[in-house]
Structures are given as structure tokens and as C-alpha cells.
């Protein structure tokens, strides 16, 4: 499969993430490893953010576990294409289980941004939207413009899922914004904010 350049994409990842998180309400957010951590932390270091700075491929299933435990709350995954590819079977599991309150947003720069922008499969023909749709996701979307992003916001935040959107973005990374790194701190802060209980 020929490599497709992503220079045609004009959306900036950080602006996209900030636009989505503006309307999060009481949603809980689980990030994937890499730039997604910085994108989410730069919007607001909300206690209901679980920054996964490891376990590549695990973000969707961590969020799925939260979604089952918190059925009345929206759970958003903000992750990258490389991270989701590492846990691609999760889409099949989530498609079967149909959690209505789970939305997965893939910030797709078609590259492993944290390790030097090496190509991922999404720039070489692998279609994550198609895989999610074929796995039984209720709604899916490919987003390449601000207008398309705007139109999808109600589905991201409110409509029954499971939902997955791939947002094609420029390959340029934004500045690193350090999120709290200590796992015990971030996880207990998240759990207390989401459940109202201390661990």
C-alpha cells in the first residue's frame, strides 16, 4: 500500500482536543500514551482525567471498565492512532459489549509522534473508522475539518454509543504540557472524583 501523505490535513491536534473538552460536562477522560496526555492536560488538569502514560494499547479497555462501572457518566477516550493500533482487538470487544456511554476519539497524525514520527499503519491504508464500524460501533466518523468536528460534538458527548471518531490532524506536535506522572496519585484522584469515595 502506497504511503499517503498527511500534509493535506490542516486540523491542529491540540485545538481539536480543547474544542472537544470544552463541552465535556461531567465526563471522565482516559488518555492514551504519548501526545494525547499533553493535549488533555493542556486543556485543564481535571481530576476526572486519567492520564495513561504507559500501557500502550490499553486506553480503550481502561475506559470500557470505567464505562461499565459508571453507566450514567460519559467516558471519553482521547488517544492516538499508534496507541489504538496496539490494542486493536479492543474495538471488537467494545463492539460486542455495546457500552452506550463510551466515546473514543483518535487523534490521527499517522505517525508515532513520541518516537520520531515514524509511520503508523493509518497512513498506509488501515482504516480505523471502518474497523470500528465493522466491529459494531453504533456511530463512527472521519473528521478532517472544523465544520465536521462541530457537527460531531453532540454524538461525542450525548448520543448513545459506542462511538468512535478518527480526527485527521497535522503531524506537527504541540509543546509538552506535563500532566501529573505519579500513577497512584492520578488514579486515586480520578477514582475519588468519579465515585465520590476515597480509595
Amino acid at each position: 500500500m502506497a504511503t499517503k501523505s498527511n500534509t493535506k490535513y490542516t486540523l491542529q491536534r491540540r485545538k481539536v482536543v480543547h474544542r472537544i473538552l470544552e463541552g465535556r460536562g461531567d465526563a471522565a477522560v482516559v488518555t492514551g500514551i504519548g501526545n494525547a496526555v499533553h493535549d488533555v492536560a493542556s486543556a485543564n488538569d481535571d481530576p476526572k482525567n486519567m492520564y495513561l502514560a504507559g500501557i500502550m494499547g490499553g486506553a480503550a479497555m481502561v475506559a470500557f471498565g470505567v464505562a461499565l462501572a459508571q453507566p450514567k457518566r460519559r467516558i471519553l477516550v482521547i488517544t492516538g492512532d499508534g496507541e489504538l493500533l496496539a490494542g486493536i482487538g479492543s474495538l471488537a470487544t467494545i463492539g460486542v459489549e455495546q457500552p452506550k456511554n463510551l466515546s473514543i476519539i483518535v487523534i490521527d497524525n499517522q505517525a508515532y509522534g513520541a518516537t520520531g514520527n515514524q509511520h503508523t499503519h493509518t497512513g498506509r491504508g488501515v482504516d480505523l473508522v471502518g474497523i470500528a464500524a465493522a466491529s459494531g460501533f453504533k456511530k463512527t466518523a472521519l473528521i478532517t475539518t472544523n465544520a465536521e468536528l462541530q457537527a460531531e460534538l453532540p454524538r461525542i458527548h450525548n448520543k448513545p454509543g459506542p462511538y468512535l471518531a478518527v480526527v485527521k490532524v497535522m503531524s506537527k506536535s504541540s509543546a509538552r504540557i506535563d500532566a501529573p506522572k505519579d500513577g497512584t496519585y492520578v488514579s486515586r484522584r480520578f477514582r475519588a472524583a468519579v465515585t465520590g469515595e476515597s480509595a
Binding site: 479497555m61 481502561v62 471498565g65 461499565l68 462501572a69 480520578f190 477514582r191
Partner: peptide, 24 residues
């Protein structure tokens, strides 16, 4: 209880972390 079939066991480790984070 909700039984969930996984495609690979590592999905379940991540799910269990999420379950605890969500209070279950």
C-alpha cells in the same frame, strides 16, 4: 455480574483497572 469475553487477556487487565477506577 457482567461477563465480558476478551480477544486477548491484556484487554482484561486494562478493564480491571478501569473497573476499580470507576468504583466496581
Amino acid at each position: 455480574m457482567r461477563s465480558v469475553v476478551l480477544t486477548t487477556e491484556e484487554e482484561g487487565v486494562a478493564q480491571m483497572a478501569g473497573a476499580w477506577l470507576g468504583g466496581q
